[in-house]
Design a protein around this nucleic acid. Structure first.
Lengths: 226, 226
DNA sequence: GCGTTGATTAACCGATGATTAACCCAGGCT
DNA sequence: AGCCTGGGTTAATCATCGGTTAATCAACGC
């Protein structure tokens, strides 16, 4: 899922990018309406997150203009102003949903998922790997067809691994994708989560590369009990 | 989109008709409750705009009576009175949204769009889910064939969940569908209603997804007492 | 064998949701 | 009008779960 985030505030933007990346989205971020326009021309996106208070141009203007040019992807508006007028204007201009700042990252992710599903109610991005299947949109994990209950951190971990099939991820990298970039964590919490993952999905899923980190096990082998 | 506008003031009515027509709506306009009744009998509408200050009959009376007869299209109420009581009355009587006079035409159009979008796809008459059945037109709920008495909020909650089978709805999203957009609610009222729902329908109906929200339980399992 | 690295386990803590009770308000009834 | 009832909201308390920590154990490399 390709998301275009248009937000000028550095702090907020980095939060969004980190959060959505952790949720399995591929995120491009721009800070101005001009840049957004360029990005929209250059690539195709599945959904867009648009802040209204941009430096160079009113976000609504941008939206309206893009809509009139045939932009059809769902757009979620971020706004700090909480007046009714703005909300109405937003919907009128072609927004599909809105979120008032400050907002919860999980809330944002949830709304994006809902929007995506509304447009195309299918299971698009089911990630499969051997007996394992993961659906980011419903946040469901299946092992040999059976649903498996994973906690938030376990999911994040699994996603990071699935997104980098075959590659070795260092603890630092994993930490970045499971926690934000900011959080400091000085403990073996990651180890513990890896352990939980293995317990739930079988030992073959996560491979240890001593001294370097972890990587996803081979798709075929690595059954639970060999 | 077929809209029924029930408004006695000529000036306002013509404004609405002009505005909505320009927006692409097909508009029928009547000036009295009696005429509205006739129209509703004669044709099918997608949405209704209802003024409360009608000459022959109270608009709320009309709404209530129509609702009790199975009218299920969204109804937006127009009212000159600005007391909170009236708004509550309106929602109670079965309105889906309300607008205070004087209002902005764009706002009216935007609200109608929102209403339509909210109910789009909910055209089926009986929603079934495992032992559970819900009839939106009569607003009746059945569990294993037995009617269950649900309060207004409980119904709204159940409806929102049924309308999004399998999806996780955040409390924000649920709040939006149970309460209007405007009402601010800073309490765990939703939790309480969920609790009531479970008490009445059994624990399997509503699933908690920790940190994310709630979703409808699986259709098969989740009996009351396993 | 020794040290380092990762695995495992149990304990603790905080966050989140569930539960319950009290209160408030509106509507219906007398 | 005044009372009564019931749903809705608030708030306070309880329970549970997940996350982190830390301590111990096993494996691997030297």
């Amino acid at each position: 899922m390709h998301v275009l985030v248009c937000e000028d505030d550095e702090l907020i933007a980095s939060g969004i990018v980190a959060g959505l990346t952790a949720q399995g989205f591929t995120v491009e971020r721009v800070a101005t309406a001009g840049a957004a326009r360029a990005m929209l021309r250059a690539a195709t996106f599945d959904i867009m997150v648009l802040d209204l208070g941009l430096p160079d141009e009113d976000g609504l203007k941008l939206l309206q203009q893009q809509r009139s040019q045939g932009l059809e992807i769902p757009v979620l508006i971020l706004t700090a102003r909480d007046s009714v007028t703005n909300r109405v204007d937003g919907l009128q201009a072609g927004a599909d949903d809105y979120l008032l700042k400050p907002f919860d990252l999980r809330e944002l992710a949830a709304r994006l998922q809902t929007l995506l599903r509304r447009v195309a109610g299918r299971r698009v991005n089911l990630i499969e790997h051997g007996r394992l299947a993961y659906d980011p949109s419903s946040r469901e994990t299946f092992l040999g067809g059976q649903p498996v209950d994973l906690s938030r951190r376990e999911q994040a971990l699994l996603q990071a691994l699935l997104h980098n099939k075959g590659r070795v991820l260092s603890s630092e990298q994993l930490k970045d994708s499971v926690y934000g970039f900011n959080d400091e964590l000085e403990s073996n919490a990651l180890n513990v989560h890896i352990h939980h993952l293995r317990r739930k999905l079988g030992n073959g899923i996560v491979e240890t590369v001593r001294g370097l980190g972890y990587r996803l096990g081979p798709a075929d082998g690595g059954e639970d009990a060999p």
